[in-house]
């Protein structure tokens, strides 16, 4: 793995304006987030647990309903979409989860093909009669994530690292314009975590898909991201390239200094 992909100059893929979220009124988790996410490369969000990183990511694909603010993807405000339009938007946003969230009792192949559910008609999904193009692509993705022989195994028979690889394949199967990754390495051992990050960086780099990743591990963030956003208490407190992130920033983000 060479250094991070080079950022081409192009407009932002996502513009977040004044995003707020409170699960209980009066206790905001996100306090007016303003961000622009570039059209390429990995953006890592770091910050202590419970600071709203996960909520921010889930607001983008509306697994969580934002309380106020706008999330602009192109001309479209994702925060205002409903029904079929929301599903159309979601299928262009892939997501990788901390605990993989594979459908345990389905085969690996079915899990990867889940990424096409936003595209294929329902009867095809039900009867598992996917277009041959989709199946070819699913196989190619399974090869790419290093699981060429596992297509017919059930997801619950895989190890954690293998599951997350399937999770990445599923997200890329959506042909996403943007990939969200919510703590993709937190359930993995350190070695597997690096492998999974490398895989994700390589495949999204090849496909030219920008990534927003929540991550606990600051070293991993520095190693793979072209930009780091530090959050604390529901607000952005650092935003810059990894080289600019210094220990006084980390103190501000995480509080205290004994751990440094």
């Amino acid at each position: 793995m060479s250094a991070t992909p080079i950022l081409k100059s192009s407009g932002p893929i996502l513009r977040i304006e004044g995003l707020e979220k409170s699960y209980t009124p009066g206790k905001p988790v996100l306090r007016g987030i303003n961000l622009e996410i570039g059209a390429q490369g990995i953006t890592a969000i770091i910050g202590p647990s419970g600071t709203g990183k996960s909520t921010l990511l889930r607001c983008i694909n509306r697994l969580v309903e934002p309380t106020a603010g706008a999330i602009l993807m192109g001309e479209e405000d994702l925060a205002k979409l409903r029904g079929a339009a929301l599903r159309q938007a979601r299928r262009r946003i892939g997501m990788v989860f901390q605990e993989y969230n594979l459908v345990e009792r389905l085969t690996v192949m079915e899990n990867v093909l889940t990424g096409r559910l936003g595209y294929v008609p329902l009867w095809r999904a039900w009867l598992r009669k996917y277009p041959q193009d989709d199946i070819d692509r699913a196989f190619a993705l399974l090869d790419a994530v290093g699981l060429p022989e596992q297509a017919t195994r059930r997801a619950d028979a895989l190890s954690g690292g293998q599951r997350q690889r399937v999770g990445i394949a599923r997200a890329l199967m959506q042909s996403p314009a943007l990939l969200l990754a919510d703590e993709p390495t937190s359930s993995l051992d350190p070695k597997t975590a690096v492998e999974v990050m490398e895989l994700m960086a390589r495949l999204t780099g090849e496909a030219g898909v920008p990534v927003i990743v929540n991550i606990h591990n600051v070293d991993l963030a520095k190693r793979f991201a072209i930009r780091i956003i530090g959050m604390t208490g529901g607000a952005v407190v650092f935003d810059g390239p990894p080289e600019a992130l210094e220990s006084h920033h980390l103190r501000e983000i995480y509080g205290g200094e004994d751990w440094l």
Binding site: A84, L117, A125
Partner: peptide, 12 residues
Amino acid sequence: KQVEAVRASGAS
């Protein structure tokens, strides 16, 4: 969680 993942893919 599994339901959430399928929903996130844009499924109806």
